[in-house]
């Protein structure tokens, strides 16, 4: 067992570190954030607000449904995208 001199050991370790580093470099990928489009509905008579998923064809200013609190018109105030993981699903 005389052939494992310090120089060889050092070289082998260096090569292993290099391979591990290269492997980690290629595996590393930035996490992709997924976005979903939501819309904000506002009641102009009592100020009630609710956020829902966007439905195709909806646009800002569209009257969509009635306010559950006072019965006034619910209007779409904004359409925007939200990070999917940040939405708290209610119901």
């Amino acid at each position: 067992m005389s052939y494992l001199d310090p120089y060889t050991v050092f070289t082998i370790i260096l090569v292993i570190i290099l391979i591990v580093y290269m492997f980690m470099e290629t595996k590393k990928k930035p996490a992709r954030v997924e976005y979903v489009t939501r819309e904000l509905l506002v009641c102009y008579s009592c100020g009630f607000q609710v956020e829902r998923d966007h439905e195709p064809g909806d646009f800002i200013g569209l009257v969509k449904g009635k306010c559950p609190r006072c019965g006034g018109d619910l209007k779409i105030k904004g359409i925007y995208s939200v990070d999917k993981s940040k939405i708290l699903k209610a119901g």
Binding site: T37, L40, I79, Y80, S81
Partner: peptide
């Protein structure tokens, strides 16, 4: 250039 983010909507 992509769908308006919520932060930007709030800033508006």
């Amino acid at each position: 250039l992509t769908v308006m983010r919520k932060e930007i909507f709030e800033s508006s």
